[in-house]
């Protein structure tokens, strides 16, 4: 755990490890960080031998998605190196609670080497947080769009079924779906889904 940091041109260059499986996301994070300064950045996919790989790189900062279960493996390094023993402690500094909270809410957790000054960590964290907030927004947008599309498809199928079976036009079919939804205190897509499922079972 006491391996010296890898040689680099400038001894002041921070070494940053990003644990991320998705290559495109990883590249996006690297790009954001490079804008703020000169860092020695390594990307690990976190699948096998993660603890050993991270320990060998002796990074100053490790960034990992809060949703990544491998966080518990990284956490091991913070503990095993003697958490009460500042000089040898590799990771962990939650001294800035506000920053940590913001980071967790944005979906990124960071492990920072002990004794690293806050003004050197802050640009890294700010960039990472902004990037993860963007990931989160994109995910929500994607899910919303996907759901809207699926709902539209199922409503169309339900309308088709009603038109065929009851001999009504499209407008009347939709009105019927909407009235049923209102009467039952449900959403139109839910009523449509129930109808489609029932029809699938009966045919």
């Amino acid at each position: 755990m006491n391996t010296p940091p890898p040689m680099s041109a400038n001894p002041d260059t921070l070494t940053i490890v990003i644990v991320e499986q998705d290559k495109r996301r990883a590249l996006a994070i690297v790009d954001s960080l490079n804008v703020t300064g000169d860092y020695d950045i390594h990307v690990l996919d976190g699948e096998r031998g993660l603890a050993r790989s991270v320990a060998d790189l002796a990074p100053d900062v490790v960034l990992i998605d809060v949703a990544n279960p491998s966080r518990d493996t990284i956490e091991q390094l913070a503990l095993a190196s003697g958490p009460l023993d500042r000089p040898v402690a590799l990771f962990v500094d939650r001294s800035d609670a506000q920053m940590t909270r913001t980071a967790i809410e944005a979906g990124v957790s960071a492990y920072v080497v002990d004794g690293l000054q806050n003004d050197r960590v802050k640009p890294v964290m700010d960039a990472a947080i902004a990037r993860f907030q963007m990931f989160q927004r994109m995910r929500v947008e994607l899910e919303t769009t996907k759901r809207a599309l699926e709902e539209r498809k199922v409503i169309d199928r339900a309308k088709g079924l009603l038109m065929k079976m009851r001999g009504i036009d499209e407008e009347a079919a939709y009105a019927l779906l909407r009235k049923t939804a209102m009467d039952q205190g449900k959403r139109v897509p839910d009523v449509a889904r129930a109808l489609v499922t029932a029809a699938d079972l009966l045919t």
């Binding site: 809060v66 949703a67 990544n68 966080r71 518990d72 990284i74 956490e75 967790i104 809410e105």
Partner: peptide, 15 residues
């Protein structure tokens, strides 16, 4: 939660 460290942090930071 996806991991124990994340669950612990959610509790510690009041989420």
């Amino acid at each position: 939660a996806p991991s124990w460290s994340t669950l612990r942090d959610m509790l510690a930071f009041g989420q």
